[in-house]
Amino acid sequence: MVNALFLSLAGLLAAVATGTALWPLLRAGKRSLWGSLVATMVAATLGLYLWLGTPMALQPAAAGAPQTLEQAVEQLQAALDERPGRTDGWVLLARSQLELGRTAEAAAAFERAVQLEPDEPELLLEAAQARARAHPQMHFDDTALQWLQHARTLAPDSERAAWLIGIVQRQRGQPADAARTWEALLPRLEAGAATALREQIAAARADAGLPPMAGATPPPTADAARTLTVQVTLAPALQARVVAGKDTLFVLARIPGGPPMPVAVQRHPATPAPLTVTLGDGDSPMPTQKLSALDQVEVVARLSASGTAMRQAGDVESVPVTVALPAGKPLHITLGQP
């Protein structure tokens, strides 16, 4: 008989992941479409596992089908205690523990998987990120760094490995090294990601006392006196949320007490590292309303799971801050701070 535990847990995870990703459809009232897509993904997940996997390898004796993710995790853990040689079982257990918010247990499960298959780049990267999520300060320790470096050796073109190693270097007070690591990554990125990374490189070079990178955007001139620089730092809990690379960070300025439409907005991939942006007239979604024409603005940072500009359920938004223009210094926002 096909292992009910393993299939049930895989189905639960597929339903959670797909349902979350398609949340905007549900909010828009398209329940039938949402349900159909979730069901299709669950069926595809189970079908692929039955076709490509070996579900009989994890067949616990007399185990009933789990009713909740917690029960499935307990049964999978028991099955792995008896048959610990399945890498895919440990990976599934680790991802399930992350879904339950059990970061320490997830890191331990990923470590068992790495011990079984130490030369799988994507596994090494996922394990290193889970280890950082389990750290009180979201730091990559020596073991996590060793995994990242090994992953980059195995996959020299891995953008994710280079990005994460740069984060480690920043965390360890090596901004010049981080800048070099990220600069080598720039040519392989799409335009939007490259723009966001250039801002991180600029911040790292500034901290290292280095001049701006060649070809970097020149500083604003007197004609752009009403630009506004904003640095957004994520609280530790949100840093743990964004390591998967699925969230978007919006920084916007709007008229205090006016309509919700911003007069300037930038959209960037959310990362654990601080983000520094400079808002100006070029960031206005409305040609008739420019930032430079205002004497003050209200600034907000928003972490979005959907990636859409309109605020959705599950988004995290900072308390609005009113800033007089021209601003004499950068505005610092900590998003997710109690």
Rank of each mutant, 00 (worst) to 15 (best):
W182H: 07
Q266V: 12
T40I: 07
A113S: 12
D119I: 03
L80K: 05
V300T: 15
Q97T: 05
A130M: 08
A235I: 12
S158R: 03
L291Y: 01
A237I: 08
E317L: 14
T322H: 12
V251S: 09
D315L: 11
S304A: 15
G19T: 03
W147H: 05
M310I: 09
T248F: 00
D281N: 11
A63L: 07
E82S: 13
L325G: 00
D81M: 14
A264H: 09
G192Y: 01
R133L: 05
P55A: 10
A127M: 12
A270Y: 09
P287E: 10
L186D: 09
A78P: 06
R86Q: 14
V300G: 01
D157N: 12
A193R: 14
G280L: 03
K30Q: 15
L26R: 13
L154A: 12
Q296F: 01
K290M: 07
S96R: 03
Y49G: 07
A106D: 01
A240D: 00
L9K: 03
P259F: 11
P259G: 02
L76E: 08
A134H: 11
A127Q: 08
A196K: 00
T221H: 07
Q71E: 11
P260F: 11
F110M: 12
K30R: 14
V277G: 03
P175Q: 00
L124K: 01
I165R: 09
Q115D: 15
P187M: 06
A57H: 15
E159R: 14
A144K: 04
V42Q: 09
F110K: 00
Q312R: 15
A144Q: 02
A204F: 00
E317M: 10
E117H: 09
S306I: 06
S304P: 08
T181G: 13
A293Y: 12
P60S: 08
H139W: 10
P24D: 06
A309K: 07
H150N: 15
A15D: 15
L275R: 03
A191N: 06
E105Q: 12
V277N: 01
L185S: 10
R302E: 11
R205L: 11
E111N: 04
E99P: 13
W34G: 12
L80N: 06
R267P: 10
P212S: 05
R311I: 12
E183Y: 04
A293C: 01
G89R: 11
A128F: 08
V243Y: 00
G314F: 10
A21T: 03
P218A: 08
A214W: 01
P236G: 02
Q67K: 15
R226L: 03
M261D: 02
R205I: 04
T45W: 02
W182N: 07
A132H: 11
P175M: 07
D315H: 08
A10E: 14
H268T: 00
L249G: 01
G209H: 04
D207C: 12
Q129T: 13
D223R: 15
L25E: 02
M261H: 04
D177C: 10
A65D: 13
L98D: 06
T233P: 07
G11L: 04
P330V: 04
A327E: 05
V242P: 06
A62T: 03
A14Q: 13
Q149P: 13
E190N: 15
W182Q: 11
